[in-house]
């Protein structure tokens, strides 16, 4: 190799590295930029109503009262309820596709269907929720004797659960497939049944990856806007049961930002955005800790 080609290769290498670090820097700058922008823009609101924001449930732009508690509760309630509902389904799908049906056309169809589920625009989920799911919930509510709205916390959580299944299921499937064959074979050769192998070998081995999938889907549920807005009922009162109407931080932003006027009003909306940013970060940090603790030490 001549000196020139070596130099050329080195230059290419350097350019490639620069491009990579540029992408990294852009992401970092963006995230920090978003945080700083939110913080600066929500300062007037933070100064104006201090901690009332977290203790008050009255959100009244007309009289200038901005309490965000019911939105915080609504967000956490719908996201965790959705996660709870989705876990049995996403876990079963991950096991089926990762262990039982790894090849063949049925697996292909199932896999495609799951991926497709993740690709459907959220507004379609919203409409489906409003026109198909909500009447079912309404009938259920009539039978149970609660106020038959059809929309509300429960409907929103069900829609969210459906939307987040693909994330946990896809990641879970990949992780389960990564479980070393020797481990599985060893288990089977010792006389363990397939079920026992799944329960005692595969799931413990893959649990940190599976939890990462749940974390990903929780993050999705926390920030989903359109579909939730369409079926949650957008009531600013604090929800009292899962049949209540509610509201989430993301949907208040989606609903009111475009028409907001007045600096404290916009600032309060941005404070909700900041809160959502912080809540998502905290949950993701806690989640990472849990995953780290769970991961297999080799």
């Amino acid at each position: 190799m001549s000196l020139k080609t070596i130099k050329n290769t080195q230059q290419k290498e350097r350019l490639f590295q620069s491009l990579l670090s540029a992408s990294g820097v852009i992401i970092l700058v963006l995230v920090i930029g978003v945080f700083i922008t939110l913080l600066i823009q929500s300062m007037p609101a933070i100064i104006a109503h201090k901690f009332d924001f977290f203790s008050h449930t009255t959100w009244d732009p007309v009289s200038g009262q901005y309490g965000g508690l019911s939105f915080l509760v609504g967000t956490l309630l719908t996201a965790f309820l959705a996660l709870l509902i989705s876990i049995p389904f996403s876990l079963s799908i991950a096991i089926v596709l990762g262990e039982y049906l790894t090849e063949g056309w049925i697996a292909l169809i199932l896999k495609t269907a799951i991926d497709l589920l993740a690709g459907i625009p959220s507004v379609i989920y919203g409409f489906w929720g409003l026109f198909v799911l909500a009447p079912w919930i309404r009938n259920l509510e009539i039978k149970l004797g609660v106020l038959p709205y059809g929309v509300g916390i429960l409907t929103a959580s069900l829609i969210l659960a459906l939307m987040i299944i693909p994330y946990a299921a896809s990641l879970g499937r990949e992780v389960i497939r990564l479980v070393p064959a020797e481990l599985k074979e060893a288990s089977l050769s010792l006389g363990a049944t397939r079920y026992e192998t799944v329960r005692k070998i595969i799931l413990p081995y893959a649990k940190s990856g599976i939890s990462a999938g749940f974390l990903l889907s929780l993050g999705r549920a926390l920030s989903e806007t359109m579909a939730v807005t369409m079926v949650i009922g957008n009531s600013n009162l604090l929800p009292t049961s899962i049949f209540s109407l509610g509201n989430t931080m993301a949907s208040v932003l989606a609903n009111e930002f475009s028409e907001a006027n007045g600096s404290i009003y916009i600032s309060s909306l941005l404070e909700i955005g900041l809160l959502l940013f912080v809540v998502t970060t905290i949950i993701s940090l806690i989640g990472r800790r849990i995953i780290k603790k769970m991961s297999v030490h080799q």
Partner: peptide
Amino acid sequence: GQGTSLNW
């Protein structure tokens, strides 16, 4: 009162 977003 009156407005584009209200406390219904």
